[in-house]
Design a protein around this nucleic acid. Structure first.
Length: 629
RNA sequence: GGUCCUGUGGUGCAGCCUGGAGUGCACGCCGGCCUGUCAAGCCGGAGGUCGCGGGUUCAAAUCCCGUCAGGACCGCCA
């Protein structure tokens, strides 16, 4: 039907008769003798010159045949890649007419997202969406190629799975042939992939759809995609190496070569000097000869404890070249009662000394809302005789050695500000860690091309307690405890480290994984620590426990959040921008009108009854749904 | 379950705080003119349940209450 793509016509094609197909991006009619049609496909735009008039309008679908020629002297358009040439003597065939577009398709105006989603089939024509979805395709292809090169085998697992009442709320599917019984859609293929290891698949991966019926966010949809990985006879390092190679291949497929930081200066390095990865976005070749060329060691690893201690979070943003500072030594004997606590941590804010009082008050409020008892601030100024002075309500309680100690420990200089939280260790770190991101994180625009991956390892096995005071699994209940900590599992569960690890990118958790328990005895001990009785455990996970008794290889794995990875690589704040047909925050689809009620006959066949009193029982708002074309 | 922001011709916004005629801007749409434009230009025109309901008021886009929708966040997301 077509001989060329719109965006690929150049001076090399001058003189050729070509046929292109696409949508009318712009029409410029000059009376009865001349009209210009800008024809668009996903490769770009080409100007077609009609000698006469045209009835074509915006977004009509045309086939245009004509001769490529150089544009007349002085009429080239340097803004267009095809701007040197045009299709002359254009003969136009209308393939499809179109209503006027419901919103502008250029990227200059930001249209309301509900309108975009209602007409998503039109929204997807926009350059931004084409770029994002094609980036996603390259990234997923690179991930697959990397794992295949590492001898992994892609296996599909069931979508109609069995309820495993742990963790996220599950989507439920009625079983027509078993009235009153239900399948559920998998929160992840976690157990299935462990069974594949028992089944001798050795190295499995899947680009897997996962479904969780939890409230939606900018970075969360009901259904999302994970690169799911599991391997037998591997160490945690082996798994991380495989995943590192895959995500680094993905970043190269996205056209981003440079990682940041090469070596993080924990204190005071200026991140603005870093090279912002100026790679050609179209230059990456996902089919390159060696999909695993990058060195996985270029992703730094830190322990969970160090991440909490230095960055106040288990998902540190290493683009920020400032970390938290321990002031326990400096303030060991302080007279300042507000700074007496089990732990004192400080955050240096470069140039923060000119922060206005109302912003300071807002910071203190923010710290309190995060659970801190207070937030102390010290503005650093030049003092008498070249020394330094601190400007703070607490300054009068500090000794001279405490002043100089604080300044030296944080590396503060005149014009800077030091924030201090005195509290329990974890709370002090978490509060300052949040302020660190609030105050210092690069904006989406300036930070988008900087990629700071890191691995966080040695997570605690348990985190927090449930309503009945039992410890809860921090990762999931199949995670292998650290071998040195197994013996204290019954006595001091909080001390038990897990062989679990997270991959973090720019302060976002990209995914997590662990070495799994392959020993039924250890699995039983973990279930016991979680307060799960043997009878309960057998009822819920009997098939898994049976598998572990049938010759289970040591194994471990990982899952990468593909939507988040792609949105970070694309520089988008919301994963909805890298998903073709996402749902709104309330879980609706403005295009199809889903979710909808079912005909009573369908409910009868499924042996389902709908109880009255549901919030949308009367179904007002039906008139607003459904963009029937 | 909760907090906050938003809702005004097809699109993006202003108007709201301080009530007084559906007032304004830009784009788009329709018609006319126009032989080198490229976000074409010039002239003219059409297009509105100010999300919805209730209240206050002589009078409500504007103030109050409720509700719906969209968004950000908390809870939640093993």
């Amino acid at each position: 039907m077509r001989s060329h793509m719109c965006g690929e016509l150049t001076v090399a094609e001058v003189g050729q008769t070509v046929r292109v197909c696409g949508w009318v991006a712009h029409r410029r009619a000059h009376g009865e003798h001349l009209a210009f049609l800008d024809l668009r496909d996903h490769t770009g735009i080409i100007q077609c010159v009609v000698d006469g008039t045209t009835e074509a309008r915006s977004e009509w679908v045309l086939m245009v045949e004509g001769t490529v020629r150089l544009r007349p002297e002085g009429t080239a358009n340097p803004e267009l890649p095809t701007g040197e040439v045009e299709i002359g003597d254009a003969r136009v065939v209308t393939l499809s007419r179109a209503d006027p577009p419901p919103f502008p398709l250029d990227d200059r105006t930001e249209t309301d997202e509900a309108v975009r989603l209602r007409y998503r089939f039109v929204d997807l024509r926009r350059e931004r969406m084409q770029r994002n979805l094609r980036l996603r395709s390259r990234v997923v292809h690179a991930l697959r190629a990397s794992l295949v090169a590492d001898r992994f085998c892609e296996v599909e697992t069931p979508l109609l799975w069995t309820p495993t009442p742990e963790g996220a709320r599950e989507f439920v599917v009625p079983a027509r042939q078993h009235p009153g019984k239900f399948y559920v859609l998998p929160q992840s293929p976690q157990i299935a992939k462990q069974l594949l290891m028992v089944g001798g698949l050795d190295r499995y991966f899947q680009v897997a759809r996962c479904l969780r019926d939890e409230d939606l966010r900018a970075d969360r949809q009901f259904e999302f995609t994970q690169l799911d990985v599991e391997a037998s006879f591997v160490s945690a390092e082996d798994v991380r190496s495989v995943v590192s190679r895959a995500v680094l291949a993905a970043t190269r497929a996205a056209g981003i070569e440079a990682l940041y930081p090469a070596g993080a200066d924990p204190n005071g390095a200026d991140p603005n000097g870093a090279d912002p990865a100026g790679a050609d976005p179209n230059g990456a070749d996902p089919n390159g000869a060696d999909p695993n060329g990058a060195d996985p060691a270029s992703i730094p690893t830190l322990t969970w404890h160090d991440a909490m201690d230095r960055y106040g979070t288990d998902k540190p943003d290493l683009r920020i070249g400032v970390s938290l500072v321990d002031l326990d030594g400096v303030l060991a004997a302080t007279e300042a009662r507000a700074l007496v606590a089990p732990s004192r941590r400080a955050l240096l804010v470069r140039g923060g000394a000119d922060m206005a009082r109302n912003r300071l008050d807002a910071l203190v409020d923010r710290a309190r809302s995060l659970g801190a008892k207070g937030l102390a601030w010290f503005k650093v100024r030049s003092g008498e005789g070249g020394g330094l002075a601190l400007d703070s309500p607490l300054d009068k309680f500090l000794s001279e050695s405490e002043r100089t100690g604080m300044v030296e420990a944080t590396g503060a200089a005149p014009g800077d500000m030091v924030l201090v939280v005195a509290d329990e260790w974890r709370r002090a770190c978490e509060v300052l860690g949040t302020l660190r991101v609030d105050l210092l994180a690069p904006s989406a625009g300036e930070g988008a091309r900087k990629l700071a991956f890191c691995w966080v390892v040695d997570f605690p096995l348990f985190d927090g307690v449930d309503e009945e005071g039992r410890p809860m699994a921090a990762h999931h209940p199949f995670t292998m405890p650290h071998p040195d900590d197994v013996e204290v599992m019954g006595s001091d569960p909080a001390k038990v480290r897990a062989q679990a690890y997270d991959l973090v990118l720019n302060g976002w958790e990209l995914g997590s994984g662990s070495i799994r328990i392959h020993d039924p005895a250890i699995q039983a001990a973990v279930f016991d620590a979680l307060g799960l009785s043997p009878v309960e455990a057998e009822a819920r996970f009997g098939f898994l426990l049976s598998a572990l008794r049938s010759g289970a290889p040591p194994h471990g794995g990982f899952a990468v959040g593909v939507d988040r990875l792609v949105s970070l690589l694309a520089g988008e704040d919301s994963i909805r921008e890298v998903i073709a047909f996402p749902k709104t925050q309330s879980g609706a689809d403005p295009m199809t009108g889903a979710p909808k009620e079912l005909a009573p006959s369908v409910l009868v066949e499924l042996a389902l009854g709908v109880s009255p009193g549901g919030r949308r029982a009367g179904a007002p708002g039906v008139a607003r749904t459904g963009a029937e074309p």
